[in-house]
């Protein structure tokens, strides 16, 4: 029975490792390779931490398994009369402290690149492609008229869509994120971008889609009963296609139904 408990705990740890190992093959993993340069950096950090925590997890459970195997099931055996070890305490304080501090400091740069305005692409920051306003339960998108710069207040020639965000691919773009009512969160899983929308704040968010493709836009902050259906889409397209889309959007939006008669 003693051996049983050792095997029980070791087996559960082995299963955990196996599960992580087969996860990607079963599709229980990231939704594809990160579709943005920043996303790739985040994934790299994920795998770095996975390596560190994986080694720790396996190490601790190997020791646990050894202990449960070796130090059990001996009737009448007397335990070591041992109260601790100063050396060991020092070692296992300093080593994890070093590793943890390394992880913390190593990450700072990616965080700064994601959120510090001074690190944004300055041209993209000066020319946000759109203002995205979250509301129960949709994303309202306001683009400046082609050739104009997005203003803080709505302009008569602004262009609007709902749940359908278009952006040029292959270069960093900035959106201004707002909320009209409660909290929401602008989440692009493929691009590894997430930012809450807070009423009263205007938050610039930048992202860069590598491929011209459609990506899911998910609301990731509970915003009420309809939270689950607040689904949007980001369409990344080559710059030329994006310009064409904007032009067409303008035409559709300002179409007053009046067609000029053909010349002469």
């Amino acid at each position: 029975m003693n051996r049983f408990w050792c095997l029980f705990f070791v087996a559960s740890a082995v299963l955990a490792v196996v599960f992580f190992y087969i996860g990607p093959a079963c599709g229980w993993w990231f939704p594809g390779v990160a579709a943005s340069p920043l996303g790739q950096q985040i994934d790299d950090l994920f795998y770095l931490i996975l390596a560190i925590t994986g080694v720790t997890f396996i190490g601790v459970h190997a020791v646990l398994g050894y202990i449960l195997w070796k130090f059990s099931g001996k009737e009448g055996k007397r335990s070591d009369f041992q109260h601790g070890s100063h050396t060991l305490e020092v070692v296992w304080s300093i080593v994890p402290a070093g590793v943890l501090l390394f992880i913390a400091l190593y990450q700072m740069d990616v965080w700064a690149a994601f959120r510090m305005k001074s690190r944004f692409d300055q041209e993209a920051l000066a020319n946000p492609i759109a203002e995205v306003t979250a509301r129960q339960f949709e994303w309202r998108i306001r683009y400046p008229a082609p050739g104009k710069v997005l203003q803080d207040t709505p302009q008569p020639d602004d262009l609007y869509t709902v749940n359908d965000l278009h952006a040029p691919a292959g270069k960093p773009v900035v959106i201004k994120l707002r909320s009209e009512d409660v909290l929401h969160s602008f989440f692009l899983p493929h691009l590894r971008v997430k930012q809450d929308a807070v009423p009263g704040l205007v938050i610039p968010v930048w992202f860069e889609a590598n491929e011209p493709k459609a990506y899911d836009l998910v609301c990731a902050e509970l915003c009420g009963w309809g939270h689950y259906k607040m689904r949007g889409q980001l369409t990344a397209q080559p710059q030329a296609d994006f310009d064409a889309y904007m032009k067409k959007l303008k035409e559709t939006q300002f179409d007053d139904g009046f067609k000029e008669a053909a010349d002469e």
Partner: peptide, 23 residues
């Protein structure tokens, strides 16, 4: 990150408690 440190120390001490015992 630093709060993970005392948690790690505790875990190692629990393992140390069982090590050499009569479980």
């Amino acid at each position: 990150m630093m709060i993970a440190l005392p948690s790690a120390v505790k875990t190692f001490n629990w393992l140390g408690t069982m090590w050499g015992g009569n479980i």
